[in-house]
Design a binder for these strands. Sequence first.
DNA 1: CGCCATCGGTTATAAAGTAACAGGTTCCAG
DNA 2: CTGGAACCTGTTACTTTATAACCGATGGCG
Lengths: 147, 147
Amino acid sequence: MLDAADAACAAHGARLTPLRRQVLGLVLESPQPIGAYALLDRLKESRSGAAPPTVYRALDFLLEHGFVHKVERLNAFVGCRSATEGHDHHDHAHTVQFLICGRCGHVQELEDASVRAALAKAAAHAGFTPGRMTVEVEGTCRDCARG
Amino acid sequence: MLDAADAACAAHGARLTPLRRQVLGLVLESPQPIGAYALLDRLKESRSGAAPPTVYRALDFLLEHGFVHKVERLNAFVGCRSATEGHDHHDHAHTVQFLICGRCGHVQELEDASVRAALAKAAAHAGFTPGRMTVEVEGTCRDCARG
DNA sequence: CGCCATCGGTTATAAAGTAACAGGTTCCAG
DNA sequence: CTGGAACCTGTTACTTTATAACCGATGGCG
């Protein structure tokens, strides 16, 4: 997955530096959304000098290039699962949806075209030119509903 | 508008105390989303003892009853425009959408049924039982696009 | 080489949100 | 009309999240 990020950066003239690559790795290896300061703690294990700006600057880059997303309701970050799957990423990066389970904390990433379309239409109807979209649904996941 | 909130609370056995009413008033009179600490500053003008918990507790109540919404991307709060317009509010309070203009900062509240439906369908398809939804679109409003 | 732009280290501070306890009110049961 | 339970608010202290500002290092490029 990191290799795909390398390739994507090379293709766009963006620099996936060791720090950024490491932060992306940490986000991706987390099974759940991870906060900036949790990330910082992990980062400190190998970089003693790491401080909040270290993490936030890396995250800014990764967000900007769509390698990670921020889950606003959790103030936490997830690796973008679709970014590394070869989509034409620049059309879709800003239209991702999250299903957040309130019980187990699991977060699932969706990329539903009809949601995107409905939202685009509603925005257009209001004379609004849409950019980045934040769509987050809190609820109960399949596993927790069964259990 | 505050009167409608009085009525809604009376109907549900909720207590719109002077403090909560005042906070709701402050949120409603703000033309733009207002942060908790800005709210606190205003509150201090008449309540010298106001502190962060004062505001946050009132906001919790108002959020829970759908009189205000939180705009997650801004960490700010807006009065719910539809809450006071006599809708069956408990079905819709959790399915509101915001259009956030990146230039002028204006925030428009939408309540688009097709967005809600698309999202519900996508969630169901993933075996997910939806609860509160956060839908926020950043972009450019009509006025700013013209100017 | 010398310049510019970008990156990251470092310190400090701002902004947002919560915990925990204490005093006061409301309101209902007895 | 007491007395206790639940709820509301004041108050202090603190945690978590995020950013500002400055500086040296690095790397591309004429």
